[in-house]
Computed example of a mutant assay.
Amino acid sequence: MTAVRAGLSAAAFLLLAGAGATPTAHADAPPVTGNWLMLRVSHGETPAVAVGGTMLRCDPPGGGHPHAEEACADLTAADGRITALPAEDALCPMIYAPVTAHAQGMWRDRPVDYTETFPNPCTLSARTGSLFALDTA
Rank of each mutant, 00 (worst) to 15 (best):
W36C: 01
P111R: 11
T54E: 02
M55R: 10
L75E: 10
T115I: 14
C92M: 06
A97G: 03
C72V: 10
M1N: 06
A48T: 14
G18A: 15
S42G: 15
A137P: 08
V51E: 07
E70F: 06
P121I: 00
Q104Y: 08
L39Q: 00
P86Y: 07
H67P: 05
G52S: 02
A48N: 11
E70S: 01
A48L: 13
P30V: 07
G44Q: 01
F13G: 13
P111I: 02
P30L: 06
A97T: 13
P47I: 09
R57D: 07
L91K: 07
S42Y: 12
A27M: 10
A19G: 12
S42E: 09
L124A: 03
C122I: 06
A78Q: 08
V99Q: 00
L15T: 14
A12S: 14
R40K: 14
D74V: 04
M94F: 11
C92H: 09
R57G: 00
R40P: 07
L37F: 04
D74Y: 04
F132R: 09
A50V: 10
D79E: 12
W36F: 01
A78P: 08
A21C: 06
R110L: 01
A71S: 03
V49Q: 12
T100W: 04
G18D: 09
A97E: 12
P98I: 08
E45Y: 05
L85F: 10
H43F: 04
P30M: 07
T100V: 09
A137D: 08
Q104T: 06
S9H: 02
P98A: 08
L134T: 15
D109R: 11
L16D: 08
L131A: 02
A103E: 03
N35D: 11
M1F: 03
L39M: 00
T136F: 13
P66R: 15
A25N: 11
D113K: 12
A97C: 01
G105F: 05
A27V: 14
G34Q: 03
E88W: 13
P111S: 09
P61Q: 05
D89Q: 15
A3Y: 00
S9T: 03
A11Q: 11
L134K: 15
M38L: 02
D59R: 04
R5T: 00
